[in-house]
Design a protein around this nucleic acid. Structure first.
Length: 121
DNA sequence: CGGCTGACGACCT
DNA sequence: GAGGTCGCCAGCC
């Protein structure tokens, strides 16, 4: 992380909003990880909360492309919710992102969003 | 106020 | 690669 601006600790008030703000910036056809979002928010260790924040998304947050957020292994985190996983796979496929037989994003490294510094602030 | 819960991740057998 | 452990910390009982 080159930009010190991005290292501000924002975990606390408005954590959800911060997560959504970052995820909204993920371009179509790209993916990012919970850990990357957490890192952008200045706290690399709060990856769990990123997923948790996304789980709290409602219909009013339809502009948040939550499906572009996957785990660090390049796979979808179902966490028991198979239905959600299938939906995510479908939405990613609509953007040209395919999964291999083991559920891993094809060409994950190239598809990974390089998160530009202008995301926050 | 205390305990529990995780769309995770890094690390260790 | 496949399992298991531990840390993390904002919400929700």
């Amino acid at each position: 992380m080159a930009d010190r601006d991005l290292e501000r600790r924002v975990v606390g008030p408005g954590f959800h909003a911060q997560v959504y703000a970052v995820v909204r910036e993920v371009p179509r056809g790209h993916v990012t990880t919970y850990g990357d979002v957490a890192t952008l928010l200045g706290s690399p260790r709060v990856a769990r909360h990123v997923g948790w924040a996304l789980a709290a998304l409602g219909e009013g947050d339809a502009d948040v492309p939550w499906h572009r957020v996957i785990n660090s292994r390049g796979t979808i985190s179902y966490r028991g919710d198979t239905l959600r996983g299938v939906q995510q796979t479908t939405m990613l496929a609509a953007e040209g992102i395919r999964l291999d037989e083991r559920g891993r994003v094809v060409d994950f490294a190239a598809r990974r969003w390089p998160y530009p510094s202008r995301v926050i602030g």
